[in-house]
Amino acid sequence: MTDYSTLKEMGISSFELISRFSLRREHDRDVLKVYYLRPLTSLRPHSQKFTFARPRQAIPGQSRHSQAWKDLLDCSPVLQQALQELRQLTGSDCDNQPLAAKDALLRDLSHLEKVVAAKLAEIREQVERLGPQASA
């Protein structure tokens, strides 16, 4: 049994509510997203995002787009430990198993549509609460 000290340091405390996690790379950062099992009516977030900077290595600029450059970049030791603890908690590896590029894009698009629809509904509700006003 582990005490999940790395996850605690990251501010995660509801270990029993973690359902899955994903990891992606954005430029020179690793982005870990942890998803929770929460009721739809919960005011607590359904996910948390953590960003880890990748270390920079001093190599010539023309080599920075090569495979050797990608191999030099190791992820943060804190991220490695967090991933190990998350694997223990969920019993699985990252949620982002190799997906076809098209499937991944469609999933991202669907998620974005849901987020935009929810934000639009929220703004409309705020406008309705303001009541009728004379426009200028």
Rank of each mutant, 00 (worst) to 15 (best):
M1W: 07
T2Q: 07
D3V: 06
Y4K: 07
Y4V: 02
T6D: 01
L7W: 03
K8Q: 13
K8C: 07
E9Y: 01
I12W: 00
I12N: 00
S13G: 09
S13C: 08
F15N: 03
L17T: 07
L17Q: 04
S19C: 01
S19R: 05
F21Q: 02
S22R: 13
S22F: 00
L23H: 04
R24D: 09
R25C: 11
E26W: 01
H27I: 10
D28Q: 14
D28L: 12
D30G: 02
D30F: 00
V31C: 06
K33M: 11
K33P: 00
V34S: 02
Y35F: 14
Y35T: 06
Y35K: 03
Y35V: 05
Y36D: 00
L37V: 14
R38M: 06
P39K: 07
P39E: 05
P39I: 07
T41S: 15
S42E: 06
L43Y: 10
L43D: 14
L43W: 01
R44T: 12
P45Q: 08
P45G: 10
H46C: 07
Q48W: 01
F50E: 00
T51R: 09
R54F: 00
R54L: 15
P55Y: 01
Q57T: 13
I59H: 09
Q62C: 15
S63A: 11
S63H: 11
R64C: 09
R64N: 07
H65I: 03
H65L: 07
S66K: 05
Q67W: 05
Q67E: 10
A68C: 04
W69V: 02
K70N: 10
K70E: 04
L72A: 00
L73I: 13
L73V: 14
S76T: 11
S76I: 06
S76R: 04
S76A: 10
P77V: 04
P77N: 07
V78A: 12
L79H: 03
Q80R: 14
Q81C: 06
Q81D: 09
A82T: 02
L83Q: 09
Q84N: 08
E85K: 02
Q88R: 12
Q88S: 10
L89T: 03
T90D: 02
G91P: 01
S92V: 03
D93K: 07
D93W: 08
C94W: 00
D95P: 00
P98Q: 11
P98A: 09
L99W: 07
L99H: 05
A100Q: 13
A101S: 13
K102C: 05
D103F: 01
D103C: 04
D103E: 15
A104L: 12
A104Y: 11
L106S: 11
R107M: 12
R107D: 10
S110N: 09
H111E: 15
L112Q: 15
E113D: 13
K114H: 12
K114D: 14
K114T: 11
V115C: 08
V116C: 11
A117G: 04
A117R: 13
A118I: 03
A118E: 09
K119Q: 13
K119S: 13
K119D: 12
K119F: 08
L120M: 09
L120P: 00
A121F: 01
A121R: 13
E122H: 06
E122Q: 11
I123V: 15
I123C: 08
R124M: 14
Q126D: 14
V127E: 15
E128Q: 06
E128V: 09
E128I: 05
L130I: 02
G131Y: 06
G131Q: 03
P132V: 14
Q133S: 14
A134P: 01
A136P: 10
